[in-house]
C-alpha cells in the first residue's frame, strides 16, 4: 500500500515538473506551420461543430425578415468591411496570408453552404476561441447579427457580380464617405433600405454625438461600433456635417400636429412648434422598420443610454406595447421630413 502511494506521489511530482517545464521553458511549439496531429485536429474540430449544434438558438428564433433585400444589403455592407479580409467574397480567392492561418478560415462559399441560419447566428455572435474568429463586437445586442446571417443565406450560388451589386460605390469626398455610403448611400438615404436609418433628416450635433458614442462603444450596435472605428476619428465631424446638409426633401411647411397621444414622441422628436434640443434625433420620414427596432430595444432594456438625452427614452418607452410601437413607427415614416432649422 505504502509503495503504491509513494509511486503515485512520485508520478504526480514528475508530471508537475514536466508541465511546468513545458510552459515555463516554452517547450511546446506553437508555430502555425506545424499542423495538429490528426487525432488532435479531429478532436478540436468536432468539439467546435458539436458546440455550435448544441448552443445555436432555436430555428424558430430566425426572424421572418431573413429574406428582406434590405437585410441582405445591410449584412453585405458589414461583411465587406469586417469579414471579407479572412473569408473572401463570392468568386474571390482568399489571400495567401489568410491561407497561412492555422486553422485556415473557411471560404465564405464553403462556410455559408455548411451551416443553417441559426448556426451562423451563433458563430457570428459568439466567435470561436483559439481560431481567430472574433465574437460580435456588441455586448447587449445580437439582433443585428441577423443582417449578416441574411446575407450569408444568399451566398450559395452568388457570383462576384451579384456581390458587387449589393455594394454601392461612390467617390470618397468628404474623406470616409465611400465607406459610410456602402450602407447609407452618399445621400444618407441608404437607397431606401428600411433597416438602415436615414441620415439626411438629422442635424449635425445628433449625428456627431451618435458617431462618437458608437466609436466608444457606449451605443450598442455590432455593425456601427465596427464602422465608427473603421474611420479616422478626425473625419467623423466632417461626415456628420455631410449627411446633415443633405436635402431631405422636406415639406415646405412644418407637418401638422399628430393625433392625441403622440405628444410624448413629438415634444422631443418633432413635429413641434418650438425649438428643440438638437441632440434629439428627428423621426419624421425615418424608416418604420428602423424606428420600430430601436423602440423595441429601448422597451426591452437592450439599448443603453449613450447620452443623457437618450436616458429619457428608458422611461418613455418602458410601457409600449408592440402595437403602439408599430403604429408610432408607421406614423413617423409617413410624415414628410422636417424642414431644416
Amino acid at each position: 500500500m505504502r509503495q503504491v502511494i509513494l509511486t503515485l506521489a512520485a508520478l504526480a511530482v514528475l508530471g508537475a515538473v514536466a508541465g511546468a517545464a513545458t510552459i515555463g521553458l516554452g517547450l511546446f511549439n506553437v508555430s502555425a506551420r506545424i499542423d495538429h496531429l490528426p487525432p488532435v485536429h479531429w478532436a478540436l474540430h468536432t468539439t467546435f461543430e458539436q458546440n455550435v449544434r448544441l448552443r445555436a438558438p432555436d430555428p424558430a428564433a430566425v426572424p421572418a425578415t431573413l429574406e428582406d433585400p434590405g437585410m441582405i444589403r445591410l449584412g453585405a455592407g458589414h461583411y465587406d468591411s469586417a469579414c471579407r479580409f479572412c473569408h473572401a467574397a463570392p468568386g474571390e480567392a482568399q489571400s495567401a496570408t489568410v491561407r497561412a492561418m492555422n486553422p485556415v478560415p473557411p471560404h465564405i462559399t464553403e462556410a455559408a453552404a455548411k451551416w443553417q441560419p441559426h448556426h451562423l447566428h451563433w458563430i457570428i455572435d459568439n466567435g470561436v476561441k483559439m481560431s481567430g474568429m472574433p465574437h460580435w463586437p456588441s455586448r447587449a445586442r445580437d439582433d443585428d447579427v441577423w443582417a449578416v446571417v441574411a446575407f450569408l443565406a444568399q451566398v450559395p450560388g452568388m457570383t462576384a457580380q451579384d456581390y458587387d451589386g449589393l455594394l454601392p460605390r461612390v467617390a470618397d469626398r468628404p474623406a470616409g464617405l465611400a465607406y459610410c455610403a456602402t450602407c447609407h448611400g452618399a445621400d444618407g438615404r441608404g437607397g431606401g433600405n428600411p433597416h438602415v436609418p436615414r441620415l439626411d433628416i438629422q442635424g449635425a450635433p445628433y449625428l456627431e454625438a451618435a458617431l462618437e458614442a458608437y466609436r466608444q462603444g457606449r451605443r450598442d450596435s455590432g455593425i456601427m461600433h465596427h464602422a465608427a472605428r473603421a474611420v479616422e476619428p478626425a473625419l467623423l465631424p466632417g461626415l456628420a456635417a455631410h449627411f446633415a446638409s443633405r436635402d431631405p426633401g422636406a415639406a415646405p411647411a412644418p407637418a401638422p400636429p399628430g393625433p392625441p397621444g403622440t405628444e410624448a414622441c413629438r415634444a422631443c422628436h418633432g413635429p413641434w412648434p418650438e425649438p428643440r434640443n438638437p441632440l434629439f434625433p428627428e423621426l419624421a420620414g425615418q424608416h418604420a422598420a428602423y424606428t420600430a427596432t430601436q423602440l423595441r430595444l429601448w422597451r426591452d432594456g437592450l439599448r443603453a443610454a449613450s447620452t443623457p438625452q437618450e436616458a429619457l427614452m428608458k422611461k418613455a418607452a418602458h410601457a409600449l406595447e408592440d402595437a403602439d410601437i408599430d403604429a408610432i413607427a408607421a406614423w413617423y415614416a409617413a410624415l414628410p421630413a422636417a424642414p431644416d432649422g
Binding site: 405628444e263 418650438e274 434640443n277 429619457l312
Partner: peptide, 24 residues
C-alpha cells in the same frame, strides 16, 4: 420656458395656452 420646450417636457405635461397639451 425655452428650456421646458427644448428638452421635451411637453411630451408629458400640459401648460394650457402653449403648445404643451400632453396628459401623461
Amino acid at each position: 420656458r425655452a428650456v421646458f420646450f427644448a428638452e421635451g417636457c411637453g411630451g408629458c405635461h400640459a401648460i394650457r395656452g402653449t403648445a404643451a397639451t400632453a396628459g401623461a
